Computed example of a mutant assay.
Amino acid sequence: MNKQVKVLVIEDDPYICDLIFLYTEKSGYQVSIANDGITGLGMFYDRPPDLVILDIMLPEMDGWEVCEEIRRFDKTPIIMLTGRGESYDKLKGFSLGADDYLIKPFDPNELMARIKAVLRRANPMLIGNEIIKLPLLEINLQQYKVTFKDREIELPPKEMELLYFLALHRNQVFTRQQLLEQLWGLDYEGDSRTVDVHIKRIRDKLGESNSYWKVKTIRGI
């Protein structure tokens, strides 16, 4: 990360707070916790975070009110937590401006995946360097520009983001599903082969005759 991402957790259940704190801190985030809505809102204004994890059922001021108040002035990403899974709650959360919605009990690894996905959609620069430089290749996500062998290569936004993600996580292997979740979102319902199509287009534009690096497929994975 080019900066430590600040996460504000507004949740009154001590066990859930401890669980979220453990996983988010392990992932490299800077975490603050409030146990009621009014305190949480005050912490939000005193030290603006990059993302808010917000419970719905809170003392003093519920999550709906907190979300609505934040959205009056700010677009900081919000992931809402609730023990209820009714579609009405989801629709209300999204109508108030929530970016994602997770039902308790939840897998903390899924929460981490959703945090990354929401941060990437809101501000890709939060999860990596603005410019990645490899031999013969420069990827500038701030300007959405790729330079290869000293010439600019035209890449649509999704191809750009995919190339950036792979270059940011060099020597790591990702399944199609992982790439879809990271770049297309957890709710993507299209064909998983769209990843193959984008990879092929990237290879066609950058070529394979490069001894410094390559976009490599691990068959079966």
Rank of each mutant, 00 (worst) to 15 (best):
16 I>W: 00
179 L>M: 06
29 Y>K: 06
149 K>L: 10
7 V>Y: 04
210 N>K: 10
127 I>W: 01
184 W>E: 06
171 N>G: 06
123 N>A: 10
158 K>F: 11
115 I>R: 04
193 R>Y: 11
86 E>V: 15
67 C>N: 13
96 L>P: 02
25 E>M: 08
40 G>C: 04
12 D>K: 07
65 E>W: 03
76 T>K: 05
221 I>H: 07
168 L>T: 00
163 L>T: 01
72 R>K: 15
135 P>I: 11
114 R>Y: 09
46 D>E: 15
142 Q>D: 09
214 K>C: 05
76 T>G: 07
65 E>K: 06
208 E>C: 12
140 N>I: 03
67 C>W: 03
31 V>W: 06
152 E>C: 08
141 L>E: 02
168 L>N: 00
30 Q>K: 09
141 L>A: 02
96 L>D: 14
85 G>V: 04
166 L>S: 08
164 Y>Q: 00
99 D>W: 01
42 G>I: 05
25 E>S: 12
17 C>M: 15
218 I>A: 14
34 A>R: 01
210 N>L: 12
84 R>P: 01
57 M>V: 05
180 L>Q: 11
34 A>K: 07
159 E>R: 02
64 W>K: 13
146 V>C: 02
71 R>W: 04
167 A>T: 07
35 N>F: 05
211 S>F: 15
74 D>Y: 09
54 L>F: 07
33 I>V: 13
2 N>L: 06
41 L>M: 08
71 R>V: 03
167 A>W: 00
216 K>V: 03
107 D>M: 13
176 R>D: 02
101 Y>L: 09
186 L>T: 14
100 D>Q: 02
92 K>F: 12
72 R>N: 12
62 D>R: 05
135 P>Y: 05
88 Y>E: 12
221 I>T: 05
83 G>I: 15
115 I>C: 04
196 D>G: 04
52 V>H: 01
61 M>Q: 13
89 D>S: 02
147 T>V: 10
66 V>C: 11
177 Q>K: 10
204 D>W: 14
120 R>K: 09
59 P>K: 13
207 G>V: 14
190 G>C: 10
212 Y>I: 06
145 K>L: 13
42 G>F: 01
19 L>F: 13
10 I>R: 04
39 T>K: 11
152 E>W: 06
220 G>S: 09
115 I>F: 03
174 F>V: 00
62 D>C: 05
146 V>A: 07
172 Q>V: 10
37 G>M: 05
97 G>V: 03
169 H>D: 02
114 R>W: 08
112 M>V: 09
59 P>W: 11
